[in-house]
């Protein structure tokens, strides 16, 4: 089936099998390797991307379901002015170790902060509870997302 998906602002048209998962479409068809795959059961969240501004586990969606929709991946976070504050926050707060869950965590974290700039630590924890990190014990991920909340895009501190 032919699908056209807008990924990080660019339209991509590909002929894919109807059963192809969105995560494989992003990785194999488009060659964007920042979105990871870690389980078969939608538990781990290493594959989280945005579809139309909402975080989605891309292993739980078929590529054909994304036809005509907008997808944003980790590769779309960095702008012309540099890293997104969520990326900077993960560096500043040591929110990553092996880096495998990090793209998914950042995509959710960015969304949580956009939705609620005054988000509490408890709300952050709940917001990332569908995703697993085996390295950090989560404390520094919570702090990294909080850092992003405290450094809005374009603010001087971030620049």
């Amino acid at each position: 089936m032919e699908v056209t998906v807008n990924v990080n602002g660019t339209d991509y048209t590909r002929d894919v099998e109807p059963r192809m998962l969105l995560v494989h479409f992003i990785r194999e068809e488009l060659g964007m390797r920042g979105t990871h795959w870690g389980c078969d059961t939608s538990n781990c969240g290493t594959c989280v991307v945005w579809v139309d501004e909402e975080p989605v586990k891309s292993c739980t969606m078929l590529a054909v379901m994304a036809d005509g929709h907008r997808v944003k991946t980790v590769e779309g976070l960095e702008g012309p002015d540099g890293l997104d504050p969520i990326q900077q926050g993960f560096i500043e707060c040591h929110g990553l170790q092996c880096g495998f869950c990090t793209p998914g965590m950042m995509m959710t974290g960015r969304w949580l902060v956009d939705k609620n700039p005054d988000i509490s630590d408890e709300e952050i924890r709940e917001g990332i509870s569908g995703q697993i990190c085996r390295c950090t014990g989560y404390k520094n991920i919570v702090e990294a997302i909080r850092w992003a909340a405290e450094h809005p895009k374009g603010s001087e501190v971030n620049a």
Partner: peptide, 19 residues
């Protein structure tokens, strides 16, 4: 000290075997 390796990981530029 902030980690050197983070620069690639936060950009989704890690290079794992499946990549």
């Amino acid at each position: 000290m902030k980690r050197k390796e983070d620069q690639r990981f936060v950009r989704g530029q890690g290079n794992y075997v499946d990549d």
